[in-house]
Amino acid sequence: MGQQILNAIFIGSIYALFAVGYTLVFGVLDILNLAHSAVFTLGAAVTYTLVVNHGQSFWLACVLGIFVAALMGLVIEYVCLRPLRRRRAPPIAALISTIGLALIIIAAIEQGRPGTLFAWLWVDGANPVTMPPGAFPNPTWHVAGLTLEGSKLAVIPISLALMLVLGYVMRSTQVGRGLRAVAENPRAARLMGIDVDRMIALTLVISSALGGLAGILFGVALGDISPYIGRDSVEVRGLAVIVLGGMGSIPGAVLGGYLLGLIEVLAVVLLGSNVRAGVAFAALFLMLVLRPQGFFGAQLRERI
């Protein structure tokens, strides 16, 4: 049980980190960025490739992985979102364009084999791979019947620290106030001299950097990197998390992440591993029906 709770906190940290970026974009743009899980995958894939195929040091690879993810945030903004915003297209159009980008990213990784166009990005095709042991320090302790892996333990403080920093930035800095202003009323923000387009680009960079980092942590600590980790592990769960916490709310996403980790672990313990995923989505469904604004979200109001 102790091990399970530890796992819940570990996976919850990943969920939270991933969902914070998800919810940030939703909060500012009212758009679900469905390419976010592809960015998660991309971060992990780039880091792995740099270490294994290009012989870079692990730490440099992590930094570059985050950098590439952040860059992808700009691509999302400039290719998928900004042209549609200019045309005042309905939000559903942005859903489709981000799906399109996700498709490109995943297909590029999936097709990466030696000798193909994308060999520089990935050479293992659809196969899952593991970061080679020794690429990064991973001390393991056995305490009171618990197995403590350094790589998994490290995820927890890293995520918490980053989310605290993000919370501080959003709450107490001029940039954070600007982002919140854009989220609340883009017109008013423009009238105050805030360059709304630039703030949105910044939002996507932050969001994607966090998403990429979440992917790296997930891939490294769980030893599972493949083109499908984003789709299978966080895409839909990320939705569940931001709904549990309240769409657009950062503390909500953090809480939601840990809550979902806990719910899943409890479901495994109490009901067996088969129903794990189903229980999470039943919780999501119930939450939306009973309290659509989530734990932290603002009351949904209808404008007359």
Partner: peptide, 25 residues
């Protein structure tokens, strides 16, 4: 600088935050 009709203050932020944001440019 344009002070718009209907004020368009940022209701979710504090008064002080509104004022601090106004110095953005």
């Amino acid at each position: 600088v344009h002070v718009p009709e209907g004020r368009e203050i940022l209701g979710r932020q504090t008064v002080l935050e509104n004022l601090e944001l106004a110095t953005w440019a």
